[in-house]
Design a protein around this nucleic acid. Structure first.
Lengths: 236, 236
DNA sequence: GGCACGGTTCGCCCGGTAGCGAACCGTGCC
DNA sequence: GGCACGGTTCGCTACCGGGCGAACCGTGCC
């Protein structure tokens, strides 16, 4: 491949836009993100983000994975990541970096919600702990689990009577590992929030979507304590 | 260096323009080129090329070397070349490639003129041969050289009486090695052209600058024969 | 000194394109 | 079926930025 035979300008045009490069920078973690999150990261509206993603997918930079309702995008080929990183090597440093922005990024890294239940690292940790300690087995709640959740004020039998599935395994696209969805995880998030372990946010950029969850260090410790306690429930 | 801390969009903006990427592609040979040649390669006017080069130099992509009147530009850091090559790896192939364009590139690679004398690979070859074989020594023509050039119909003594320096060593920026400039090399180019070894072109893009020189394979062979003959002049 | 040439600056035009709001669509949930 | 939500399409506006012509500048040559 000779440099004169390819259209370098076309390749550079896509990351040359600040909105697209912000999306790509977020996607450089190798994980898949929904279009809405990418729009939020770029600071633009959904229509604009949709147009950008259309271009990026059309150029073969990104690929789309369907997982439930939303569309998840991730970097399609390692060459794309390589090109972005080599561009970063000659890129000037960003002049200012707001505290709000950096704290938002840190927040996003530790906890988020998937609709109405805990996802992200905390969601995966919850999934692993409940499965390891026997409260959950094969997408079902075990008898030990019922009593353990009852201690948090959750009536598993009542949830089981509802139309919503009690428990589903959902692949977490920010962690690429499974977390738990369904009526029980939703109730667990409510229980965690009631106890102040997790706090609903109004949105990273002030938008009132209320889908973000904050776990401060103290809450994180208490949540992990409960997960350890749940192990005790099992042994008991 | 974290990807979120640098302005990837700013880095990609420069090669995203077709004119700039054409210049950069030409400069990827690692050699220095004058601004006019870069404008020609990009197919734009001098003012536009000047503005582009100003941006590329300001961003640290290129550096400027002064050599006589014109300004020569070359890639400043290897990281820039790396970034361009990694962009080329994900770039789409150019749809069409005109025969005229490719033949022009091939032509530029083998021969060109520096104002009125032979430069490029042929100019360097000429410099090396004349110096090796004793027609030229220390920017002066030797007695053996005088008789040898006389065989081509060149009156060295007459040239010596002119105001223009007979011989100067000039660093060839496309070869990064010295070639010969001055009244004698200019007369040599005329002699070569009279014999049909070299042919003046009207310009790569049809512009009537008449500065480009073509050497077809037959002419190249004859020129090399004469350079070998000039060695005989020395031994004689 | 005069000329020629490469390069630069300035002012203007114009095309490409990102952005938004509004409306629409499809899907999952209840 | 109805609702809610994520995503898309459409139409429009506005801005950024590249291109040119004209004029100017500096330098090398004669």
């Amino acid at each position: 491949m000779r440099i004169a035979d390819v259209d370098v300008a076309a390749a550079a045009r896509l990351p040359a836009d600040p909105s697209r490069s912000a999306m790509l920078a977020l996607l450089l973690d190798g994980r898949a993100h929904p279009a809405g999150a990418l729009a939020q990261a770029a600071g633009i509206g959904r229509p604009a983000a949709s147009a950008h993603l259309k271009q990026l997918v059309g150029a073969g930079y990104l690929e789309v994975v369907r997982q439930g309702r939303p569309r998840y995008c991730r970097i399609a080929r390692p060459e794309v990541a390589t090109a972005l990183e080599s561009l970063a090597a000659i890129a000037p440093s960003l002049p200012v970096r707001s505290l709000r922005q950096s704290s938002a990024a840190r927040l996003r890294a530790t906890a988020r919600t998937c609709y109405d239940h805990l996802a992200g690292p905390a969601g995966v940790l919850l999934h692993d702990a409940l499965r390891d300690h026997g409260q959950v087995a094969e997408d079902a709640v075990t008898p030990t689990g019922v009593s353990c959740f009852d201690a948090l004020g959750i009536d598993v039998d009542r949830l089981r009577r509802g139309r919503r599935p009690l428990l589903k395994t959902c692949l977490d696209w920010t962690e690429r590992r499974p977390h738990l969805a369904g009526a029980l995880p939703a109730a667990l998030l409510v229980a965690f929030t009631d106890r102040g372990w997790t706090v609903r946010r109004t949105g990273l950029d002030g938008a009132p979507n209320g889908r973000q969850v904050e776990i401060d260090p103290a809450g994180w410790e208490q949540l992990r304590d409960w997960l350890g306690c749940s192990a005790g429930c099992h042994r008991r």
